[in-house]
Write a protein that binds this DNA or RNA. Sequence first.
DNA 1: TCTAGATCATTCACACTCGAACATTTGAGG
DNA 2: CCTCAAATGTTCGAGTGTGAATGATCTAGA
Lengths: 383, 383
Amino acid sequence: MSPEQPAEPAGKSLFSLQRRERLMEELRAHGAITVRGIAAKLGVSELTIRRDVNILADEGLVSRVHGGATLPSKLDRSTAAGRPPHHSYSIGMVVPSLDYYWPQVISGARAEAEDQNLRILVRGSAYDAADNRRQVQALLDTQNIDGLIVAPDMTGDQGQELLRWLNALPIPVVLAERRSPIEIPAHRLEWVATDHAFGAGMAVRHLWQEGHRRIGCLTDSSSPTSPHVVRGWHQALAALKIPLEGSVHEDSAKPENGGRATHFDHVLALCRKTGTTAMLVHSDTQAVAFVQHCVDKGLRVPGDIAIVGYDDEVAYLAEPAISAVRPPKQYVGKVAVQLMAARLAEGRMRPVHRIELNPELILRESSAGAPQAPAAGMLQVPQ
Amino acid sequence: MSPEQPAEPAGKSLFSLQRRERLMEELRAHGAITVRGIAAKLGVSELTIRRDVNILADEGLVSRVHGGATLPSKLDRSTAAGRPPHHSYSIGMVVPSLDYYWPQVISGARAEAEDQNLRILVRGSAYDAADNRRQVQALLDTQNIDGLIVAPDMTGDQGQELLRWLNALPIPVVLAERRSPIEIPAHRLEWVATDHAFGAGMAVRHLWQEGHRRIGCLTDSSSPTSPHVVRGWHQALAALKIPLEGSVHEDSAKPENGGRATHFDHVLALCRKTGTTAMLVHSDTQAVAFVQHCVDKGLRVPGDIAIVGYDDEVAYLAEPAISAVRPPKQYVGKVAVQLMAARLAEGRMRPVHRIELNPELILRESSAGAPQAPAAGMLQVPQ
DNA sequence: TCTAGATCATTCACACTCGAACATTTGAGG
DNA sequence: CCTCAAATGTTCGAGTGTGAATGATCTAGA
């Protein structure tokens, strides 16, 4: 391998097909890309990106423009405009982040919208109810929205009020990765969400099967996902008869924890004290940092401590690569659009659908094998 | 590297099938593999890996790229040629009754199957796990079933064992009006079910809004639906701050209750004692009989006692016509077939879907209007 | 409208990968 | 023990993907 790579953020080089896949993802997430930007992001030359764009344009998957590419447009006369676009409906989509997690959801939604011949308008928002509402209102005011897909902040009174407001909107609303709580009879709201509790349980069971008997949990309470992960962790511990007290459960978002390194040291100390040999770490960004910290401290992963991340955004980049629970992000977007399309087509007679999707557990190195065999005889070192 | 590391053909070299399995594992873990890397890891020559990749690519399990392989991609047009065989599938369907409730589910399933160009084979079964299994086995043996939609009995050890067996079947399985419990990690089972708890809650809230402050529940514990109805009733009482003790909750399936008339008299006596003016009656067959009984006893419905039935099979036949919660039976069948069709078309990559549908509340005469001025001494009747 | 700067297409070179033919090993059955 | 067939390894010429250089073309801004 040629190690004279220019500062490559992606760590490992991609195959051409993956590169084009990434390119399409970026395109669907942002609506347009620049050759320069993508080249830098993927760590290849601009020429390569141009070639990719040409290939994709030949298949009609993108429209070429000077300096980059956009989603296929009917204004692009180079393509064989064989289909009547006739956008029957327009859907607004408001998501809390355009950097993490959500680009893939958007990508799945865009792909499905294209199949269903729908127009989709995406807006990013802050992680708070007031801004959620502002963004939705903006879509309602300026565009002609027939339906809304949204992942609102649901915390506090503001969140509840927002839900009520959404429920009362005159257009159908689908929540993505959110559930309407039973306390609020938001009976018109449909949703599609990943069953994060199931995902966490799957991770715990996997670690149990690998031989771990003390399995901790490191979460980030600032994320809406976290409560579900913790719930799944609890349920799995109960099912496996692991006592809750004595199990490490730390929150990396608590302000009093000081610096991250300090907190990680604290967590490791707790692990040592309780005999914990495996950790489920929510947000695999955290997991990557945690593994790095462990390695720096001379701990072997997975020998001394096994790690499973949650989200699978960057888990594969770590060294060693981190096993992670992967929510079906593309499908969340896809199913949300399917729900919306069916609702728009069938109207009120269709019953309210609420859909949970199961995540997948991706096994990599960070959780392989039993917890450290203390005095394991040196096995043969063949070859 | 820890012991157990399969960096070499340690112990036993793998058979080709196992090797391809490993290859797919690595692929799932990292999204892509290099021929070189995988060859080194498995201790075989690169050519062997290339041959494996070709085999897997022919089956559409991977996409070939220069230097390795990736997960199947739509951008890979080598595979898209004649892949979708559109060979029509056959679906088996086993339901616990061909008289009550299920005919409409079957009707919805049949309609959707026709749209999707699927063949569907329906079998009735008894309400017990052993017969469920017999019927499913018969379908598997005699017909050529590509998928199974089933509403099994899930009670007791036999029910759990049945679920495990279904989960292990080599064909996709969709449960209808059943949920796989979290205790059993039946992770492959998908389902579509009515949210009966929501339906019961809707009924309670409706009665509350009509002015009732004591709302009882008459259930039939022999039905799998009943626990959910009771749960919804409980949750709604809690939300409305109606104390649970003092609320009438009777089970018409309990054997010691003697004849139906006797039991109904008992229930009415309880209502009188507790000041209950409204009842949610599960299975509207029961509701019809109960209304008849009330009328016979000279009680006015809804004047003296308001009734809401559950299921809406025959509720409209009573005199007066009974308000009832109507589960979206047609849609349960329809969505089950949709799930199955999508699963058969998309294969393993599709995440497991679990869908809840909301029922509808059909308002008729038996629950209209406020409770009448007390004939006997009653508790406070505000508003 | 014109100019400066950016973007694009073409060519060439290089390294790596692929596939075919042939050689070798492995395992099952006679 | 032998034979055959399937699986695997080796070699080598052809093919493929990538990047640098260069000149043509395009866009933005005055």
